[in-house]
Design a protein around this nucleic acid. Sequence first.
RNA 1: GGGGGAUUAGCUCAGUUGGCUAGAGCGUUUGACUGGCAGUCAAAAGGUCAGGGGUUCGAUUCCCCUAUUCUCCA
Length: 874
Amino acid sequence: MIPTSKEIRQSFLDFFASKNHQIVPSAPMVVKGDPTLMFTNAGMNQFKDWFLGNEPALYNRVADTQKCLRVSGKHNDLEEVGLDTYHHTMFEMLGNWSFGNYFKQDAIDWAWEFLVGKMGLNPERLYATVFEGAADDKLERDDEAANLWLKYLPAGSVINGNKKDNFWEMGDTGPCGPCSEIHVDIRSEDEIAKIPGVELVNKSHPQVIEIWNLVFIQFNRKANGQLEELPAKHVDTGMGFERLCMALQGVKSNYDTDIFQHTIAELGNLCNIKYGDNEKTDIAMRVIADHLRAVSFAIADGQLPSNNKAGYVIRRILRRAVRYGYTFLGFREAFIFKLIEALKETMGAAFHELASQQSLIEKVIKEEEESFLRTLSTGIRLMDDLMAKAKQENRTEIQGKNAFVLFDTYGFPLDLTELIARENGMTVDTEGFQSEMEQQKNRSRNAATQETDDWVEIRKIEQTVFLGYDKFEAEIRIARYRKVTQQKKTFYQLVFDQTPFYGESGGQAGDTGTIEFEGQKWVIFDTQKENNLIVHLTEKMPAAPDETFIAKVNIQKRQNTANNHTATHLLHAALREVLGKHVEQKGSLVNADHLRFDFSHFQKMTEEEIEQVEKIVNARIRENSVREENRKMPVEEAKKLGAMMLFGEKYGSEVRVIKFGESVELCGGTHVNATGAIGLFKIVYESAIAAGVRRIEAVTAEHAEKFVNEHIKILKYIQDSIKSTNDILGSVMNLQKENSELSKQVEIFNREKVKVVKEHLKNRILQENGINIISGEVGMGNPNMVKDLAYQLKGEVENLFLVIGAVIDGKPLLTVMISENIVAEKGLDAGRIVREAGREIQGGGGGQPFYATAGGKYADGLQAAIDKALSFVK
RNA sequence: GGGGGAUUAGCUCAGUUGGCUAGAGCGUUUGACUGGCAGUCAAAAGGUCAGGGGUUCGAUUCCCCUAUUCUCCA
């Protein structure tokens, strides 16, 4: 009986539950509150603070399955995906952890018990690697792990690995340690007979692969590169779920497991191509099946495709999928969104966010696909131009610089440029392209360099105590600090033993304020949160950092922020009341000046809906509901209370619940004591930010008052200046109507005047050598009338040579118009004539051979200029 | 965070040495043809050339700032 992916996942969790592990849900794939990471790229991310010692571990044994995305930074697999059968952008990582509890022995015993005992993998096909040691770090071989493996494996199956493969580090600094990997050989008997598996371990063979990495964290790497032994040792393991399924289901590719096959079959139906028929179309289908997952889960976690940061990464993944579909499967219209139903059928049971967010995911993806198809068609047009130009210049190569512009500025991928070039018998200078790319990378790197010194620890603390819910001011001591230099600017990060400062998180801006000691003040210009660490930023470091300081939060700003935050909760509840329960928070920003709230909703809000929402919020404010706060409520109880849980948020087992009347939310932010403090709430802006997502911006209290007053002031000003008493709108509309009628009148008069002047000039035609010469000064209101006059005369008088002078707004204007045939016959050039004659009015000019104008500063010279112009035909 | 683009009619876009009375296709309206529809033909309406400053006799075009947006890199 072949186990399904669902059964395999469950067996893993059940197994470690039986070993007294706490099973926790997957953290969101999109990381919030960690500046060093955009996406969860390993199972341990959500426990980072426990490893770093920033906060105590809640459990000492944990296991889970974690949604991971590897598309940027150190682990970037994006361009590999699809080409082989085992790389992914998004994947599930099964993991078990020990926080200062068990170590190498249990980790290895249980891994073996699960794989061989529970899941029935053939032990003869398994290999283990252990760290061979490294001289530069003065580390010995990990004999302890090796000996443990020898209980289960023959000596020939325990292999030494180097620092690159078998020493795990989180980053340049931080916790690290040796690791031991389990590899499995899933080749056929025949192949194994030819080459023993042991020779293929870590050789990138698609069927001799690592499935489980057991990391033994025993060191801390400092900024100077040295290692120090950790007091508490941890275990961090990660097993690729897709690979495990492949091994257990007896297939040769991750994509042949039931995790992907349903989606691939559906895709095959859409394009009428069978998976397995052709290498090229197979790659495309794998790319799409993989990217679809990554993008769908990212959107479900609240990360919409956008034009920078994490959102941009998501956009790029989706576009890569569209590109493959476009090139290899012949899709010319959006298609990926149609596969979400199939994905939901496969994974929806384990990850119910797929089902509950399905229509949003579909809309967003469809919109993105369509927008990228437009980008592609623009690129194809530009490509046509480039090729035409190259052919003109007898080149068969598209210059690297041009290909780069196409890519860099217009987002047109290089492989498509090459494809189109090839189809037209041309090539692309990819070396030139790469060198341009290299320059761009250097520019960015130079701009982004940041130097971070080691933390200087003054006193040991377990975790900063946050006092800000109750206090604006407190005695604090600095626990540690470090210097950060970024683009020649230097500032310091301070961590306190306790603090009234709120660190930026949950959309609420960080506090500002001061710390004081004996009359001296240091400004805290921002407070940030890195995971759960509250970091205070200051430009100057106190000379005696081990003193006790008074920390004071900027109260005015904090209160304004609280107004806006509470108003956001009321707004959220009101939107659900007016628009429906499909409204869910997709993003939120709260600072002292205003609030911004993004939420799922599929159409523009009507004026009436906005008005109604505003009305409800203001009514709640007047009700003056008192804040009911519970800082440590079990998450299950909060759910029962009807608190809104957001997808894409990580919740601990105990949560803070904020209740104002009907509004119940899980929230770590700071709020008003009673809604009355908000005073007034005004929506100032409603717009779309993506398919299916709207944004509201609003202001409260003084800012709302100011907003209203300014509008009233403007209205009053209008009322005063149009001398209207009651019907302002009617008066303005009347004025507009009158204005347009008057403009039309002026237009008519002007035309009439041009006509009169024209007739007058026609009566003064001077014939000379078969040329009809007209000249004179005319009084015209604007240059366009003169132009009009000239063109009319050209149409009505043959063989014309016209010179007109006019003074408009005190400035002289000279116009010359010559019939085209005269230009040709006599070799005249109106442009040259006005340039020469223009000197008489201290100006210059130009135009075309038959029509040119010149302007100047010296109006008295106008007649001389006219004479000068006439001298060209006389 | 750094670089490169874009912003012209309701929509998609042309508009290169600064001066072609600012254009095309689609759409809209009207009229004609057809028994009706589909359609074909003809005509018209529709533009503060994103906003602000500057250079110039003259700016959609060149320069600077702002806003919005796209795109690449980190």
